[in-house]
């Protein structure tokens, strides 16, 4: 590994880039939600309030840390960085400039699936470690929800891989160049992926594990200061990560319909395509989450098991037959 790769992983288009993207996403989320609700959203922090998530983050890091007495202190204190690491590592498998990611292997998707599972597992561990009553209830819901959406999510991710005949994200992106976007090949898989991402992100209508009017702040109730800052940042980063994953798997990622072979500024065009697609998916998620109420956990489980799982299986079958 040479120095350039380290810079790529840590700065651009790796960690730092994605963290700032996460802040922008969070801001866009709040702004879009506010606009849809008839408000204007954050205004004071930075121009049009764009620095609001940054302010939240730095404020949290400067606060006092409180560790509950009966908590598992090791996990409680050291868990949040690991929780943060899951989507952070996942992002380096996603091509941002060019058709190849920083790190690419033939088995990318297996690792991505592991990251998604690990992130939920970590949330569960953090919740249990804090040993609060609300957290415990919340973790019950989290695990149940995870058990429901995991299968459809997995099948939805596998569909484009089957279509591309490749388990590498870079490979899948390359297979979609020349406007062969998989959203046209596996539309149901795309829809299932978006719905499952809402559940993975704990956004309405699946914000069941941190339903604030039922169980306070869910599994995050006991966290304060720096751990909370990490947890919040991880949530936004997961947001970006899942949007980027959806963009790469279904919308061709960095591969655009036109201007695919210019000599100058090729990287800039790749980046532009990538960002446009990520924000498009982000806006879709913002809109869905703002327009819906929270469902109950059993209703969510019903939806995933009786509707989305068969649908994604059907999609997978169609893709296999088409190939």
């Amino acid at each position: 590994m040479d120095a350039l790769e380290v810079v790529e992983i840590l700065v651009f288009p790796g960690l730092t880039f994605f963290v700032w993207l996460a802040f922008v996403f969070e801001w866009l989320d709040r702004k879009t939600t506010a606009r849809m609700q008839g408000r204007i959203g954050p205004m004071l922090a930075g121009p049009r309030g764009i620095l609001q998530p940054v302010a939240d983050f730095f404020k949290l890091t400067s606060k006092e840390e409180i560790v509950p007495q009966f908590s598992d202190k090791l996990v409680f204190e050291w868990g949040p960085p690991f929780f943060f690491a899951a989507p952070a590592i996942g992002t380096i498998f996603i091509p941002v400039v060019g058709l190849n990611a920083i790190v690419s292997s033939p088995y990318d998707l297996l690792f991505i699936l592991f990251v998604l599972a690990f992130s939920t597992l970590m949330a569960g561990m953090l919740g249990y470690a804090s040993a609060g009553r609300f957290s415990t209830i919340s973790i019950g819901r989290l695990v149940l929800q995870y058990a429901s959406f995991e299968i459809p999510l997995l099948l939805a991710i596998v569909s484009p891989a089957v279509a591309a005949g490749n388990l590498s994200i870079s490979g899948i992106v390359q297979a979609q160049s020349n406007f062969h976007w998989f959203v046209f090949v596996v539309p149901i898989g795309f829809a299932v992926f978006i719905v499952s991402s809402l559940a993975e992100l704990e956004k309405p209508p699946f914000d069941i594990p941190d339903a604030k009017t039922e169980i306070a702040a869910g599994w995050m109730t006991e966290f304060s200061a720096r751990p909370l800052a990490y947890v919040k940042l991880t949530e936004s980063l997961s947001y970006v990560f899942l949007s980027a994953l959806a963009a790469s798997l279904f919308l061709g990622g960095t591969a655009g319909p036109v201007l695919t072979n210019v000599t100058i500024l090729q990287d800039g065009i790749y980046l532009a395509y990538f960002l446009i697609k990520v924000f498009a998916i982000g806006f879709a998620i913002f809109a869905i989450k703002t327009a819906l109420a929270r469902v109950r956990i059993n209703q969510a489980a019903n939806l995933f098991w009786t509707v989305l799982t068969p649908l994604s299986l059907l999609q997978l079958g169609i893709v296999i037959l088409l190939r």
Binding site: T33, Q37, P204, D207, A211, T213, A293
Partner: peptide, 16 residues
Amino acid sequence: VGYWTGFDTLFMWIWK
């Protein structure tokens, strides 16, 4: 009711 069912948009609209 909107607020309690996590439907913040309804809450905001009606309160507006």
